[in-house]
Simulated scan of single mutants.
Amino acid sequence: MTNLNQLIVHHRSSHHARYSGYARLIDFLDEPQIIQGKNILPYRLAKGISQLSNQQAGLYDSKSVQKEVELYRLLRNTKTPGIVHYLNGERDVRYVLNYKKASRSTKFCASFHKPPEILKATVKNIRYLKQLDAAICVGANQVDFIKKWLGIDQVKYIPHGVDTTFFKPLIHKRSAKKMLFVGQHLRDFEMLNRTIPEILAKDASASLDVVLKKEFQAKVQLTSDRVRIHTGVDDETLKRFYQEASFLYLPLIDATACNSILEALACGLPIVTSAVGGNMAYLSGSENFLIPANDEEQFIATALSLLAQPDLCLKIGQSSRELSIRYDWNNVAKAVEVFYQEVLT
């Protein structure tokens, strides 16, 4: 990417493991300049400025202010054509977009992560977002909505990535009849709580590991001693859960991209999840299971069928691993950089 400044406005969700999350994109781009939000302004001043900003235009806190000051200084001192990429379009996007008036050689884009219904409900003031030149959607279900919502023509679905070097299968560690549920965002805990007792009652050897943040522990209302809840796990432990499970059991309310699905694919697991949002595009052409969101009986029947067929789990798991290569961060980063060039031309 010769003579192209890649200015990446960093954001990392606190619940993501070291090898998870969209911020991993930075590690695979060609010499990006990363705007982290250095403490340039006194904290109280930055906080005061953020409190004056309309929060209905997306999250904007003291760290957002520091990112804007840092970004503005970089833009002011460069004459090379460049792209500013907000890793999370649901936050941090504000006043530096006025810089567009002074520099036609700099283009602004953002990646969006929330499903359309959540975007509409949480970002009601779109005056700043409408100034973006382009948008990246991590879910195929976002594209038409973002185009219409923001009035942007250059909108592209580029999948979320996964680190297939870190997340990888270890077949000899597979444990018979062990299901795995990971995460909390947009998880369908009601479906989990309704179906797992039925599955465990019909298969006395089955068990479930649940990995999530401690503050969501109460969402899991399962009392069986074959249900184990784990919080605060480190990266290696998380990977081990994937590597030892028979399959990922993950009912969802909605989705764009789901880290847990991508990581499970990379670790060679079959996926049992809901036919919602971006899931269909991510699992397209695979042998994994997309179940209508309210079909309790099909969730139960699918889980019981897989629990009874370990060889089938291994077979589907192999195809899952092959599918995950499509989402390897190296491939995703290349697609993002091609998009940067499209936006600049």
Rank of each mutant, 00 (worst) to 15 (best):
Q56F: 04
H230L: 07
V336G: 02
F108A: 02
K148S: 14
S175N: 14
D311W: 06
R228G: 00
I300L: 07
I126M: 09
G268L: 12
L119Q: 13
R44C: 03
D133V: 06
K147T: 06
T106K: 08
M191Y: 05
P159D: 09
E190T: 14
E70T: 08
L200H: 13
L132Y: 12
N54S: 11
L283H: 10
V227E: 05
N77D: 11
A110C: 05
R24P: 00
I152C: 01
P32D: 11
Y86G: 02
K177A: 13
G183E: 09
V336L: 01
T302F: 10
E263V: 02
K100M: 11
E297C: 05
Q131H: 11
A264I: 06
Y22R: 01
L29S: 03
L129S: 11
N3C: 10
S14Q: 15
H172Q: 13
P270K: 04
Y128A: 07
T106Q: 08
N141A: 02
T223K: 13
L150I: 04
K334M: 12
D92T: 06
S13I: 01
F166S: 08
D153R: 12
N141H: 05
D30K: 09
F241K: 02
G139Y: 13
Q298M: 14
Q309W: 00
R127V: 15
I40V: 06
L75R: 01
Q217K: 09
F247Q: 03
L269M: 06
G82E: 01
T80Y: 00
L314V: 13
A204R: 08
L59H: 13
E31S: 15
Y86T: 03
Q66W: 10
A301M: 07
N77W: 08
V338H: 07
Q243A: 05
P115C: 10
A206C: 12
Y43K: 14
M280P: 00
V276I: 12
S111E: 09
G48D: 07
E117N: 08
A17S: 11
A255E: 15
V211G: 05
L186W: 15
R174L: 09
M179Y: 12
L208Q: 10
S284N: 15
H230M: 01
K168C: 09
D163E: 14
N77E: 10
A245L: 07
F299G: 06
W329S: 03
D203Y: 12
S62I: 02
A134H: 09
E263A: 04
F167G: 01
I261G: 03
I325N: 14
E263H: 11
F181R: 06
L262T: 10
